[in-house]
Amino acid sequence: MSGGRELILARIRAAVTGAPDVEVTRAYRTTRDLPGAVELFAERVADYRAAVRVVAEEETAATITTALAGRGAVRVVVPAGLPPEWTPPEPVADDPPLSAAELDAVDGVITGCAVAIAETGTIVLDAGPGQGRRALTLVPDYHLCVVRADQIVADVPDAVGRLDPARPLTWISGPSATSDIELNRVEGVHGPRVLEVIVVR
């Protein structure tokens, strides 16, 4: 590629010659079972000022309808592969792909997720079925995410172990926020200003 490559590699080799190697000890908590993971997840998501509803399987469709109505969201983007029972009556499909301007004009987006983390209140999307490409959950101002209880893991190490790095991943912990003004947290900057989560037991 350039002379920089060989130069940098040579500098590194000269710099570390004779230095001892270091062994990595992983004495921290790794994979674990966490009773009450659903409750902890809901509590931690709510800490980020995102609305959370924990519902039974058969209440899911009605809860989605209520949530969308509460936001006045009619034109809602639906990624390919979203379960039909979660799909609102007038879905906006991303096929052919919507332009950024079109995404900016919809009322919101509804997705599933790949994994959720109880300890940190995090949802991870991997662009798989029911999630779609990354822009779908970025440009619309309202994101409704449905999480199944069996997708909730205890902590960060469990999530890292379940995810495929070859897929583009988006880890979401609450709505878009900033701490840039006097280090006070303010929700709502460039990403969706409203995040709502429905946890299906």
């Binding site: 790095p165 583009p168 988006t170 912990s173």
Partner: peptide, 11 residues
């Protein structure tokens, strides 16, 4: 924070 609002990974 327990986790920052957004983390993106891409390969």
């Amino acid at each position: 924070e327990r986790m920052n609002p957004y983390t993106s990974t891409w390969t």
